[in-house]
Design a protein around this nucleic acid. Structure first.
Lengths: 349, 349
DNA sequence: CTGAAAGCGCTAACAC
DNA sequence: GTGTTAGCGCTTTCAG
């Protein structure tokens, strides 16, 4: 008969398993861990049965205290408002979670607020809380504390960005290729007056995309001046403001490439408010292919970055790093064009 | 001089602090915890200084092992694909994170997959991993394992839903009020042929909203048959399909209330594809006021549910529950109408 | 093949 | 006021 479930009972410990199966506590531990040390099949079976019957689960805290490993990974996001409500971060987090979970790791959430950095909480996480690794989603060059961590040899991975100067580990999408796809798509449609809304200047991939976009357009015969590149802050609001600004600088603009879908969606909204039809007057192409991209009006043409898979891959790499199966990790994932209805040939003039 | 930071060094323990400041380990512990036991001001200052100098941080694993408290809360989400990429969950998670963090708790992520339930991982979390509480975001009546947990007196909180039958703790938005606001808004504009896209039938709040909507419309002179209520599965795709179905059943429909903004956005997209203009031909009102709602075309009229604040409140309640400051928690948060451009009077017939 | 014992870092009776 | 000591639950050498 089961114990009364309404009474909060202390979980069964390895000691009880040992007592119940008439062996020492060492034997139980041995069976659970190093099975190389030969335990007689009979004992093993008996102990395993007891474990099953008692519903024993090793206490991770005690294990961690001993092993100095917690099997917990932290996902760090930048100190933005409501960061977890961002689908971009969310896709990455889902990928990381699913893969980490599959490999036996748990996920702890952290936000890189000012206090987090100032009080060196990132060290604390490793030292006192025993996270085994840190995955930084949304990191950029201003996050200098990462060097602190890397210098201490703690496993840290930059998810979907990288630092030009240093050799911190990363997994990233090929944003230069994304920009080239976008440039070829727009130029191929016949656009000659093109603007770009880029992400923040401190994000390396945003700079890569900008450079590749400008360069590819130039090769295809369309010069893009610095005037026609604006910062959209990765947000809908920023994308809208940037679109308006670009149009002010060049009223004859017929196409815009935005560094992510949120900015593209913000741009479309603002263009609509300004009386420009998309794509009839102005084409807009985004980047990422977030789920919503297919449901705005008009549905967004974009470059698909495999965020979920990138998250999974990041988790794999992190765990390989922890287990020292690899010494470093610098990986670049391919992207692809997704054509929908927000791009079209420029209007006849 | 600092130690070479490139060498991964064992974090400083309480023992070293004690040795360095020439006191026993107990004294240090006492200073850090029960300061009631009077330690001379001199010793205290000396020890605190050492702690500061050495950069000592208590090891949470060791503390937890002793106290049987981890200061970690788990957020559980349903086993949907890419659950963390959902802004609805994301807003709640942001709120929970921010408040939990402020109160000294860390956040662990968990997904209620089939395996999670079958293998009773939820028990394991409490037993072996020492989470102090579980916040379930996206729970519904089919999640019967919650009773298991509650029966064991483990702190569990349902975030933004509740179970009609049982008295599990919860914090929830007033979805009945939301539906009444939507009904009054649409009826007030003059609509008489109204459809509803509701969330899943196993979600209590979805049923509350449906009942309140139908009832309020009836009171205002507009009968809504069961025919004009469709399940939109809480997704854009589902919302689109439901909108099409409603229109098939009642081609003269002039307004739709969707149980969340994603379904509303999906409905708008499909209406557009079907050649119905929003709001000229059909008005659409959503629920939640997610950030994107303001950036779709047309901007979405909706009922704002304070998801972020609800997350914060949930974290507070959970922690009060853990600390036994409260015995139970049944809280309902108010909502408000946000009028944008997706609703208008019905077309003249 | 199995067990005794030390110890991971910390807390809290209980002594002095 | 401060220190001694016994665990928390587990892993792992080292004996037998």
């Amino acid at each position: 008969m089961a114990t009364d479930p309404t009474i909060r009972v202390r979980p069964v410990s390895i000691r009880e398993v040992a007592r119940e199966s008439g062996v020492s506590l060492t034997t139980v531990s041995l069976i659970l861990n190093k099975s190389d040390q030969r335990i007689s099949e009979a004992t093993r079976r008996r102990v395993l049965a007891t474990i099953d019957r008692l519903g024993y689960r090793p206490n991770r805290l005690a294990q961690g205290l001993q092993n100095r490993r917690s099997h917990i990974l932290a996902i760090l996001v930048p100190g933005l408002k409501h960061a977890f409500a961002d689908v971009y971060f969310g896709e990455l987090i889902s990928g990381i979670y699913d893969e980490a979970s599959r490999l036996g790791y748990k996920i702890l959430l952290e936000v890189a607020t000012a206090g987090f950095v100032r009080q060196r909480k990132y060290i604390e996480l490793f030292d006192q809380c025993f996270i085994d690794g840190l995955l930084f989603v949304g990191a950029h060059e201003q996050h200098r504390f990462l060097h602190d961590l890397a210098a201490r040899q703690y496993p840290v991975l930059i998810v979907n960005n990288y630092f030009a100067q240093e050799r911190l580990d990363y997994v990233v999408c090929d944003y230069a290729a994304a920009a080239r796809l976008a440039a070829r798509h727009l130029c191929g449609l016949g656009h000659r007056r093109i603007g770009m809304i880029r992400g923040a200047i401190e994000v390396q991939t945003a700079m890569d995309a900008r450079n590749a976009f400008v360069e590819t357009c130039r090769q295809l015969g369309t010069a893009i001046s610095d005037d026609l590149v604006a910062d959209g802050l990765y947000t809908e609001e920023g994308g809208g403001a940037a679109a308006e600004e670009l149009l002010r600088r060049e009223p004859r603009l017929t196409a815009i490439f935005a560094g992510n879908d949120k900015m593209a969606i913000g741009a479309i909204r603002r263009l609509h408010q300004l009386g420009r039809r998309v794509p009839d007057d102005v084409s807009v192409i985004g980047c990422d292919d977030i789920h919503q991209a297919a449901f705005v009006t008009p549905p967004l043409t974009t470059v698909r970055t495999p965020l979920y898979d990138l998250g999974k891959r990041s988790a794999q790499c992190m765990i390989d790093l922890i287990r020292r199966k690899v010494k470093q990790c610098h990986e670049i994932l391919p992207v692809e064009l997704v054509t929908r209805e927000s791009t079209a040939p420029p209007p006849p003039r």
